[in-house]
Amino acid sequence: MSLASPHAAQESLTFRIGKNLFDMSEVAGGMAVLLVRVLWRIARANFDWNEFKTNMYKMGVKSTPIVVVTALFVGAIAVIQAAPMVQQYGAYGLLGWGAGFSVLRELGPLLTALMISGRVGANNTAELGTMVVTEQIDALRILAIDPLGFLIAPRLLAIVLTLVIANIYADALALFGAAIASKAMLGVEYGVFLNGLTSGLLNFGDVAHGLIKSAFFGLMMAIASCYFGLAVKGGAPGVGRAVNAGVVASATGIFILDYFVSFIIG
C-alpha cells in the first residue's frame, strides 16, 4: 500500500505543473533575450557576411526541391477539397479566387514554414548543438569572436529571408498546381482559373499578408532552433533532445504566431 496521501499526490501534480510553467517561461525568456541581442547585432550590421551567404545557400537554395514539391501539391490539395462544393454550385469561376485566397494567406506561408522548419530548423539546431558539445563555440570566444554575431545573426537573417523568398515562389507554384488540378479534375480552363485569380477579389494585400506571416514564422523558427542549439547539454544525446525540442517549439510557435498575426493584420 502506498504511504503517499492523496494530498501529497495533488501537491506533486501542482509542483509538476508549476515546474513546467517555470521551465516554459525560462525558455520563452531565453529566446526573447537571444532575439533582442541578435537583432541588435543585425541592426548595427555586426555580423559575418560570409556566414550569411553560406547559410543563404545552405538553407535557401538547398531547400528549393522540398518547397517546390510541397507547393505543387498544396495547390492541388486545395482544389481537391474545394471540388465537391464547386461542382455542386457550379462555381467554377470562383475556383481561382478560392485557391488563391487559401494559398496566399494561409497554406503557402504555413506549409512552407513547416517544411523548412523540418529541414533547416532541425539541421540548424543539430549543427549549433554539435558546435557546443565539441567546444567550437568556446573556441570562437577564445579567438575573440562574438558567437552571436558570427553564427547566430547570419543564420537568423538567412532563415527569415529564406522563408520570405521561398514563400513567394511557393505561392506561385501552389497556384500553378491548383490550376493543373482544376483542369485535370474539373475541366476548368486555365483562362477561367486565371480570371478567378485576377478578377479583383484578390489583391496585393493578400500576398503581403502571407509574406508578413512568413517573416514572423522565420523569426520564430530561427530563434527557437538557435536557442535550443546553443543550450545543448550532455553530449550527443543532448543534441538529439535539443533537435526534438527545437522542432516542437518552432512548430508550436508558428501556429501560435499564425493565429495572432492573422488576428492583428486581418
Partner: peptide, 28 residues
C-alpha cells in the same frame, strides 16, 4: 574579447571547425 587574443588554446575535443578545411582552421 580583446584580451583573449593573448591566449591560444587547444581544446580537449579539438574544437576544429568542421565546415572549414584544415588550412582555413589554422588561418582562422
Amino acid at each position: 574579447q580583446g584580451f583573449r587574443k593573448r591566449f591560444g588554446i587547444a581544446f580537449q575535443n579539438n574544437a576544429l571547425f568542421d565546415h572549414l578545411s584544415v588550412g582555413e582552421n589554422i588561418a582562422f
